[in-house]
Write a protein that binds this DNA or RNA. Sequence first.
DNA 1: TCTTGTACGGTTGTCTGATAACCTTATATG
DNA 2: CATATAAGGTTATCAGACAACCGTACAAGA
Lengths: 239, 239
Amino acid sequence: MALTDFNQIRRNAHLPARIAAEIGREIVEGRIASGEKLPTEHLLAQTFGVSRSVVREAIAQLRNEGLVETRQGVGAFATEKDRRQMIRVEPADLTDPENFRDLFQLRLALEVEAAALAAVSHTPDDLKRLDEVLAQMTGAAKWTEEGIVADLAFHRAVAAATRNDYFIQFIGFIAERIQLTINAARAKAVLEEIVEVTIAEHVAIRDAIAARDASRARSAMRDHLDGASGRLNLELTVP
Amino acid sequence: MALTDFNQIRRNAHLPARIAAEIGREIVEGRIASGEKLPTEHLLAQTFGVSRSVVREAIAQLRNEGLVETRQGVGAFATEKDRRQMIRVEPADLTDPENFRDLFQLRLALEVEAAALAAVSHTPDDLKRLDEVLAQMTGAAKWTEEGIVADLAFHRAVAAATRNDYFIQFIGFIAERIQLTINAARAKAVLEEIVEVTIAEHVAIRDAIAARDASRARSAMRDHLDGASGRLNLELTVP
DNA sequence: TCTTGTACGGTTGTCTGATAACCTTATATG
DNA sequence: CATATAAGGTTATCAGACAACCGTACAAGA
C-alpha cells in the first residue's frame, strides 16, 4: 500500500474515528487487498503523525466492524470480504431524499412480508400487544411526539409478531432510522391532519393479521406504506 | 450501578472485548438506564483491575456499537435505545436450523421485492451483467464451488439492478451469510442433481426483469427461493 | 539428511504516568 | 443581575516501557 496517500489529519474531532475511516476506505476500495497485512501500529502512528494509542483505537474499531483481524505478535490483516460482520447506515446519508426513498423502499419490502408472516405466526400475546399499541395511538389526540412513538411501536409490534428475530432486528433498525429522519425534518404540521387515515390503515393491518390472512396482511401493509410514502412526498419506484 | 457486580476478569484472551461485553450487558439488560452516566474510566479500571487503556478500548468498542456516547470532559453515557447503529448476525447462530430458516425468510422478503424493483429500474448494463452471470452458471458443468459462487453472483447482480444501495448492501450481506452456511453444511451431493432446475428458475427471473414486468419478477423470485428452501429441507412459514 | 531445540527480532497487548482539551460549577466582578 | 474568571474533574492524546506471542533462522543431535 502507498503510505504517502494518507496523512495530514486535521486536529479537531475524534482522531481514531477519522483514521479508522481512512484505513477502512483503503480496504473497502481494495487498495489493501483481502488478507494483506497492514503496516505496523508503530509505522501507522508515525505516518499519521499521531500516537500509537490512537492508531490502536482505530484498528480496534475496524476489527469491531469486521474489516481487519489482528493476531498478537504477527500483525493486523484485512479480512476476507466473506466475513464482514456488520451493516451500517449513516444517518447523515438519509438527509439526501434519494437515499431516504431507497431506504423506505427497503423498509416496504421487509414490512410487507413481515405482515404476512405475522398473520401466520402470531400468538395471542402478540395480538394483545398490537391492540394495546393501537389504543395508545388512538388515544394520542394529536400527532405529536407520542403519536410518532406509537406508530413506531406498532410496526415494532408487527415485527415481533413474526416470531422471527431477524425481522425484528432489521425492521426495528430501519424503521427507527426512518422515523428519526422524519422527526428531524419536522413535517409535523402536515402529519397532524392525516392521523386518522393512518390509524385506519393500521387497523386494517391489525385485522388482517388477526384473521391470519397472510395475503390480505401483505397488501394492507403495502397500502399503508405506499400511502405513508405519498404523504412524505416520496415517489416509490414500485408501488 | 453496582460496581461490585463485575470483577475477576480471567487473564487469557482479549480483555477489552470481555470488559466491553460486561458493560454492554449492564446496558442492554437495563441495569444501566438509558442516558445514565457510566463510572469514570479511572474508576472502571480500578474496579476491573486493569489499566485505563483497556477500559478505554472497551468503551471505544461500545461507542462503536452505539451503546454509549462519550463527551470529552464530561463522561460516558448509555445511549438512548433509539440510536443503536448496527446490525450484526453471528455466523454461529446460523448453525441452528431454525435461525437459518428465519434468515432465509428474511432473504425471501428482500429478494422478492428486489426482483420487482430490478424489473423497473435496471439499466442495459445491469441486464448484460445478469446474462454474463447466467452464462457462467450454465457453463459450470457441475454444481461445484464455481456454481455456488455463480449463484451468489446472480443474486448480487439482481440486487445491483435495483439501483438501490441499501438493497445491494443488505442482500449482499444476507445472501453471503446464507451461502457460507450452505457451503459449510456440504450439501453438495444433493445439489448437483438439481442444478438444471435452479438455472431454469434463474432464467425465468432474468426474463421477467428484462421484460420490465415487476409482478412477474416478484413471483418468479418467490418461486425460486421457495424452491430453493424446499431443496434445503427448510419449511418456510409463508410460501 | 532430518528432526528437535533454542535463541532472536518483530509485533501486538497491556501498563504507567503525564499533559492537553474540554465541560461544569462556583466564585468574583462590573 | 449578568458576565467574566478560576477551579476541579473527565475524557483525549501522548510517550515510553515491559509482557506475551509468533515466525524464522540456526545449531545440535539422531
